[in-house]
């Protein structure tokens, strides 16, 4: 009996030791001195007047890199404002936005009717603010030496819901009899919504026998590894991988236009150049920290847009967006 009570004492020490370990791990988390967040791009015109609070952003993973970059720089100037960015997808973001769980929703398309209704039901008013351009790029394998450009009709022929196209020859008669392997974003993506709307004339209408992934890097890998591949995704992923894949020029009726910063910005890359948006809850906009954040987004944010791989709007468009915030 003595043996056991003796042992239980030693065991008790171990129990305490184990718990201390776990708790100290947590304590390390909250106490160990972190370095201050990264240095900012510089002073912004007197905005750092002790703003504080939380700004919650969620939504499109396409737009997230921009919002994250802006959040990073904004917090460097306003350390007591905590900005968080989630990536639930455009649809997922709107689901949270329309019930008032978040302040700002990143969106790679316009708000849909049913999402408008949801917002109305919970009494939420919002402003739509365009923040950047993106060009959906049509990409092929590097060893594809036949295709240089493609027309919208051909794209429709390939991607239509009842498409019978199996080889490149089926698309254009003088292309080789190479098997056509398709890659594209999944159905939750705003890119998918926009592409199907422009190419197939109906949002969400697409053939389904293609390799789909919500992760654009997976699509890049797929196209890079398959000679007969054709895929579509946001411009940033093409621009970062020009050594692995090629983009086709797209002919929307006025001649073939290749996607680049200029053609996307001036709108000649038709019809696949699109605008990216943020939606802001009007109630949240009344809070000084949110207003300051949005002003920052539309001024300092302009340079950050191209830094993370997207095409900034024209200055005049940013001025217009700024008016929406005021």
């Amino acid at each position: 009996m003595e043996l056991y009570s003796n042992m239980s004492k030693k065991n008790k020490i171990l129990v305490v030791a184990a718990f201390t370990l776990i708790l100290s791990l947590a304590a390390f988390g909250c106490t160990s001195g972190g370095k201050e967040s990264t240095t900012g791009t510089g002073e912004t015109e007197g905005e750092s007047k002790n703003l504080s609070g939380n700004i919650k952003i969620d939504g499109s993973s396409t737009v997230a890199p921009i919002s994250e970059a802006v959040a990073e720089e904004f917090m460097a100037v306003n350390p007591s404002v905590q900005v968080t960015v989630g990536t639930s997808g455009t649809g997922g973001g709107f689901k949270k936005f329309t019930v008032g769980e978040i302040d700002i929703s990143d969106a790679s398309r316009h708000i849909k009717d049913e999402e408008k209704e949801a917002a109305e039901k919970s009494g939420i008013e919002y402003v739509e603010i365009p923040i950047a351009y993106d060009g959906i790029s049509i990409v092929v394998n590097h060893d594809n030496d036949w295709a240089k450009s493609i027309t919208v009709e051909e794209l429709n022929k390939i991607w239509a819901p009842d498409s019978k196209v199996k080889t490149w020859k089926d698309v254009r008669a003088d292309w080789p009899d190479e098997k056509l392997v398709l890659y594209g974003p999944g159905t939750d993506s705003g890119t998918f919504d926009y592409f199907t709307d422009e190419i197939n004339g109906e949002e969400g209408a697409s053939r389904t026998d293609y390799s789909a992934s919500e992760d654009d890097n997976v699509l890049v890998q797929g196209v890079a590894g398959d000679k007969g591949a054709l895929g579509y995704f946001g411009y940033a992923y093409y621009a970062e991988n020009t050594s692995k894949i090629k983009a086709l020029s797209v002919d929307g009726g006025d001649g073939a236009i290749e996607p680049n910063e200029t053609t996307i910005k001036d709108g000649t890359y038709k019809p696949l150049a699109r605008r990216l948006f943020i939606y802001v809850n009007k109630k949240a906009l009344e809070r000084p920290e949110v207003k300051a954040f949005l002003k920052f987004y539309l001024t300092e944010g302009r340079t950050l847009v191209s830094e993370v791989g997207y095409v900034p709007l024209n200055d005049a468009e940013y001025e217009q967006s700024l008016k929406l915030v005021e």
Binding site: C30, A64, E101
Partner: peptide
């Protein structure tokens, strides 16, 4: 449950 992908502060 909506954990975020960008958080630049430590939970206190």
């Amino acid at each position: 449950i909506g954990a975020l992908s960008f958080v630049a502060f430590v939970p206190r």
